[in-house]
Design a binder for these strands. Sequence first.
DNA 1: CGAAAAATGGACCGGCAAGTCCAGAAACCC
DNA 2: GGGTTTCTGGACTTGCCGGTCCATTTTTCG
Lengths: 197, 197
Amino acid sequence: MPLTRKGAATRQRIVDGAAEQIREHGVLGARLEDVMARTATSKSQLFHYFPGGKDELLLAVARHEAARVLEDQQPELGALTSWDAWRQWRDKVIARYRAQGVNCPLHTALARLGDATDATRAVTCELLAQWQRQLAAGIRHLQADGETAPGLDADREAAALLAGIQGGVLILMATGATTHLEAALDTGLDRLRGARP
Amino acid sequence: MPLTRKGAATRQRIVDGAAEQIREHGVLGARLEDVMARTATSKSQLFHYFPGGKDELLLAVARHEAARVLEDQQPELGALTSWDAWRQWRDKVIARYRAQGVNCPLHTALARLGDATDATRAVTCELLAQWQRQLAAGIRHLQADGETAPGLDADREAAALLAGIQGGVLILMATGATTHLEAALDTGLDRLRGARP
DNA sequence: CGAAAAATGGACCGGCAAGTCCAGAAACCC
DNA sequence: GGGTTTCTGGACTTGCCGGTCCATTTTTCG
């Protein structure tokens, strides 16, 4: 069931439009009808490209958004090779989420699906794993350069940092303030910096 | 519109039952019908006690669960007066969320409501504020006892710790593992301990 | 006890949004 | 260029589930 060039474009338009819709109105305000209107498509097209219906569409949106999360942090996240790079990354994360505001399309899309679904879980886990992996790589780089304590468990530090970010974003979504996200990042980095040998 | 003793009991039974239902099946699997069956009530009762319908019920559940979150951490959270108290609190938090598993009734109840609603936001903010306040108080206690650096901004440290917890729980809900929650708590406490004068 | 208020049962309604279908237009490919 | 596949439009169906209504029972309180 290959897609023609036009078909692929339509499919992409649908995913983008759905993501946009969710970003603006939450999952609640993301009915198929809304997506249709926004993307100038008809219901048959939606079910043509996503035979599994709304769930399949939301999953596609989630994947799409998960990729975006990591992309938005590049190139900094992929090259955390100096304190300055870490600082720039920190700034980028905060700016990114501040701009996103209170609606996290990924979070919201996943929330709508039965959280137990294997597929949704896989998307989340994969995202977290990649994210953490890059953070850990950055920490190891610092260690190699003698910029932080070689005794630190890079994976655990990365896990803690990641948890802080996730919580910070969650709180941002609830309160609209980036205070907690900033506090988590800053104390986390401060901890690494303070462990300089 | 006063409630008789019986009425109050029924109302409570409904809230408890709804919370339980959500805990077991998520918001998706929490239809009014389910709550009715579980609590042996009829639809008219639901709307009698919650004229605002499902939203009002969910809000009540959220409030109920928010209170539970803090209660479950007592008495430790309220008396973080020594390193040992902090350690016990840490253990309690992890045990609590490990037991809860992948379904956070509060999170899930709030997710269902339009996230923009003022009322839901108020519940979340209030919970976070109280939580953070008690953590900050604990940090100040350590400072007063000369157990950690007096120069630390207790509120910011508490904010970071709270963010770590929230993120850790979020990741627990997604992955089922407490690794991140533990990492966040342990590195957070380690940071305070490491700042001992 | 008896009137007023509150609590309960359960049938009924209605809307909304997901999902189905088929006919016709456009694109692909030899 | 013609046959085949893919794509598109939009009307129709369906079922779920929140919400309404009213009649009946139970509680409260002077």
